[in-house]
Design a protein around this nucleic acid. Structure first.
Lengths: 205, 205
DNA sequence: ATCTTTTTCGACCGACGGTCACCTTTCTTT
DNA sequence: AAAGAAAGGTGACCGTCGGTCGAAAAAGAT
């Protein structure tokens, strides 16, 4: 529980450097210099360089995750509506801090690392939440499926992987097609009439 | 177009080292030593260490991909059987690198890089194949679904991401659960009776 | 004022990826 | 076969990196 001010200074520094530089080319000394502290101090707050990136990802995706989590347990809202909120949270959180990034070929390396952390984080955080929603939906008779955890994971994997096109580069249309297909699969797979989950496809800006 | 023998010797060396060593701890010198050549020679065949990994990934996934592709267009085999072959191809190819790998906490950049290459490669190569199979299944009345391409992509994403536990670390049981759920979802989603796709879960050794 | 704890630091370390000038082998030309 | 060119091969060497460490400054406690 060290000084959270310096802690965030370091994350700010990395974020700033990430905007116009490759992750691999960013050295710990550089982060320290940008943060205005000595290199040794970095390791007072973080055990490794990787941990800094991890923490940055977590900090960036904290807000949408919190709101999604908060809404998830409001039982008065129908399960499917809450599921839509999860969808939306994923949509918003993806490509959050890569938007200002160069779309150059060389920066794909950086994107891969960040994306990996992103998917990992979102899934571990949202899977229990989404599974709980599904479980409630099963109890309420709105959803028919055996394994809530696994269904939650499938949905989240497809969403997170497809949403930001790092792992499988694709156009906006392809992304929408895939999500439509996922919804269709969910409708049939959970015993709901076609089109009943259409509201999950929220319109992009 | 240098000597392909030495070229493959280097890939063999890396593969051998990957079998029982942390990926990050493998140095170029070590690869060279294992391959029985000098370090400098490595850079006669490859521009960088990353390029060796890249080439190894491509070489490793070439065989299962080719067999899967070849089988895909044999229309006399029922679509679901061919789908099972795709499943199997993914299963075989995924655990190729990591079979005797330490399951240590520290998954690092190299591992992520391999996984990304793997997912990307498998999906781009197998998606059209699997989509074609699904399309034929739709024509034959065995499968009911609107968008073969998207369905193929969903299946492949879940399979590749879940199969090798880089992106979402999980136990063997969890992997099986998720795949079972995917199969169940597919059965219901494509208008097939429960259990009819059970043979997709092939037994692991 | 003195002691204890927390925080800061940059010189230092081992190791890494990559380069280079030089050597050896193989091919080409005469 | 001789000579020269081209291809193949090398390990000492370089700059840099992530990470360590002991010292010392800053902050708190008494």
């Amino acid at each position: 529980m060290p000084n959270p001010l310096k802690y965030n200074q370091i994350l700010d520094a990395l974020q700033e450097l990430l905007a116009n530089q490759e992750l691999q080319s960013i050295s710990v000394s550089e982060i320290a210099h940008t943060a205005g502290i000595g290199k040794g101090s970095i390791y007072y707050y973080f055990p490794s360089k990787d941990a800094i990136l991890q923490a940055l990802v977590e900090r960036n995706y904290e807000k949408p995750l919190q709101t999604a989590k908060a809404l998830a347990y409001q039982r008065e809202i129908p399960p499917f509506t809450r599921m839509a909120m999860i969808f939306q949270a994923c949509r918003n959180s993806s490509s959050e801090f890569l938007k200002s990034q160069d779309q150059t070929e060389s920066s794909t390396q950086t994107r891969i690392f960040i994306h990996q952390k992103y998917v990992n984080h979102i899934i571990t955080e949202l899977k229990p939440v989404l599974a709980e929603i599904i479980r409630q939906g099963i109890q309420g008779g709105e959803i028919r499926f055996e394994d809530p955890e696994a269904l939650a994971e499938i949905v989240l994997i497809v969403l997170t992987v497809k949403m930001d096109n790092t792992l499988v580069p694709s156009s906006k249309e392809e992304i929408e097609d895939t999500i439509s297909a996922l919804i269709s699969l969910l409708e049939k797979g959970t015993g709901n009439p076609a089109g009943s989950l259409n509201f999950l496809k929220s319109q992009a800006p």
